[in-house]
Amino acid sequence: MLMPTDSLVEILLVEDNPLDLELAQRALRKANLSNRIQVARDGEEALDYIFCEGPHAGRRIEETPKVVLLDLKLPKVDGLEVLRRIKGDPRTHGIPVVMLTSSREQNDLIESYALGVNSYIVKPVNFERFVEAVQGLGMYWLLLNQPPRLA
């Protein structure tokens, strides 16, 4: 798969389930958004990418992805922690984060919003609706929503 150069990443997709990952990528591909996706398979990878640590040490933190699609349940560092770190850092708190999860738990929802999540979408079982949701998301955050320009 073609890895986008760092500066062109528009979507950071954080997903541990390979099947969900493939489906999400397929959906995004169908919406012609696939060439600007960076995938992280767990919370740690996601944080490394966003904060330019570990394998991403050379990346410039100013070049933020335009949206982060974040699964809630993740190995190593869970989604809420990733969200807390992104929203707690002045350099990254402007990145829009969308929780994409199969959990319908009220607590998760409440805590996500308390931490400043920008949107929260429950993954539907029905794939068509999943595709619609993912595509809608991608379009919204990439094309419609103008993130605040970082100085």
Partner: peptide, 18 residues
Amino acid sequence: VSHDLRGPLRAMDGFSRA
């Protein structure tokens, strides 16, 4: 249950559709 049981279902549905 909420999180994990629905994953395989989503895969079933998604890949069937694919």
